[in-house]
């Protein structure tokens, strides 16, 4: 089957998927990249190359600020999510009896399967004025009037952290259960306490899992439009929001394309920075 006819049959099988990827993934990226060097003047598209959009990006605090906001929120979310998820994954892997672990894990990521839009909306129910928390504070008597915890950066962060704690618990747990128990025993035999054994054995060995999860968190978080749009309010915009506004309010596709290219660039830089921990083919 490795003859000439076999080879052409192989190509024939590969072609549909390849064509789809080239036509609907590579080509749109190239067109978007080209658009980012064009300009919108009035309602017209000026099809000549310039760096105008990129200059505009660095000139206006509106644009740069939204990127800075995005990076800040994403870094906070990633760090907080890892810090919250690691102990939970550890408890699931080490403290929960074997036969209950699967059940406990499924339970821990159950709300993962609510619709993404609905999940952010649910947090609005919890955080908004008159919502569960506001109502609780009123009942306890901490506040006299209903308070709103929505429409700010904190709400966006909570919505994100909720999603990514589940994701990271899953990836870190998967990493922890792969560790042979003999490692810890060996460390204990050689005189290491539980803390030492954690810092020198467990943590370094689970670092790849943490990094993969953290990178995934970073990419998904920085490119998300829904959570900040529903929970964050309008006072502080993140990059995906300014990008969408360029399209919906101004139909400025070239500027939106430039913002998308900048977002891709940021993600690539983070990827290269983390690359030595990210052996994605192992996942």
């Amino acid at each position: 089957m490795q003859g000439q006819s076999g080879k052409s049959r192989g190509w024939a099988l590969l072609t549909p998927a390849l064509l789809w990827t080239l036509l609907f993934f590579m080509m749109p990226l190239l067109i978007m990249g080209t658009y980012s060097f064009w300009e919108r003047a009035g309602m017209k598209l000026v099809r000549s190359a310039s760096l105008a959009n990129y200059e505009k990006f660095f000139d206006k605090t509106y644009f740069v600020g939204s990127l800075v906001n995005s990076i800040e929120v994403t870094v906070i979310v990633t760090v907080v999510s890892v810090l919250l998820a690691y102990p939970l994954a550890w408890i699931l892997a080490e403290r929960v009896p074997r036969r209950w672990q699967r059940m406990a894990l499924i339970l821990a990521i159950l709300p993962f399967w609510t619709s993404y839009v609905v999940r952010s909306y649910s947090w609005l129910l919890v955080l908004s004025e008159g919502g569960i928390i506001s109502n609780f504070l009123l009942d306890v008597g901490i506040t006299a009037d209903p308070v709103s915890f929505a429409n700010n950066r904190g709400a966006t962060v909570i919505g994100f952290v909720h999603f990514f704690v589940m994701l990271l618990t899953l990836t870190i747990y998967a990493n922890l259960v792969q560790l042979p128990p003999s490692y810890r025993k060996a460390a204990a035999d050689l005189g290491a306490g539980p803390v030492q054994s954690f810092v020198h054995i467990i943590l370094p060995l689970t670092l790849p899992g943490i990094m993969v999860g953290a990178f995934l968190t970073f990419v998904l978080c920085i490119g998300d439009y829904i959570t900040p749009q529903i929970l964050g309010g309008n006072r502080e915009l993140l990059l995906p929001q300014t990008m969408m506004l360029q399209i919906s309010r101004r139909s400025d596709f070239p500027m939106a394309s430039a913002l998308a290219m900048i977002l891709m660039l940021v993600i690539s830089v983070v990827y290269i920075a983390c690359a030595r921990w990210l052996k994605l083919d192992r996942v």
């Binding site: 609907f24 993934f25 990226l29 067109i31 978007m32 990419v219 490119g223 596709f253 394309s257």
Partner: peptide, 24 residues
């Protein structure tokens, strides 16, 4: 190379894929 090409969309944000398709 083809393996890489076929799995490449996994590394790009949905938002960027969406925008590329819209413009195209």
């Amino acid at each position: 190379f083809f393996q890489g090409l076929l799995t490449a969309p996994l590394t790009v944000s949905y938002l960027i894929i969406a925008m590329g398709l819209l413009i195209t």
